[in-house]
């Protein structure tokens, strides 16, 4: 922890996006798993995820960022999947 002499007057936070240093993945009790074969790349998971924990590269979903995913299950619930088959399923953490 910082000493008072090391603080920025006015408590201004100078480093934008520094929350990335705070990993929220440990909050998870369920983890989303991606079944690529059912994925239609609609990006709904990416759009709805409250935690910016769906990884995309070049406009495509590539998996989850488990450092931040809190395991809420919104992505799995909203995933349309292919012909009724979900591309995301939730599994209990640690199994």
């Amino acid at each position: 922890m910082k000493k008072w002499t090391e603080l920025v007057p006015g408590a201004v936070v100078l480093e934008a996006g520094s929350s990335a240093k705070f990993k929220t993945g440990s909050w998870r009790t369920f983890r989303p798993e991606w079944l690529q074969e059912n994925c239609i790349q609609c990006l709904m998971c990416w759009l709805y995820c409250p935690d910016m924990a769906v990884k995309v590269a070049d406009g495509k979903m590539t998996g989850f960022d488990y450092d931040y995913c809190k395991g809420c299950g919104v992505c799995a619930k909203e995933c349309p999947g292919k012909q009724g088959k979900k591309a995301i399923i939730m599994k209990p953490e640690g199994k």
Binding site: T24, Y48, P50, D51, Y68, V74
Partner: peptide, 17 residues
């Protein structure tokens, strides 16, 4: 950015995003 501390599944960050 990720690493915020809203509850899992909260609607607010999605709205903001």
């Amino acid at each position: 950015e990720h690493g915020h501390r809203m509850c899992a599944g909260c609607g607010a960050p999605t709205v903001v995003k």
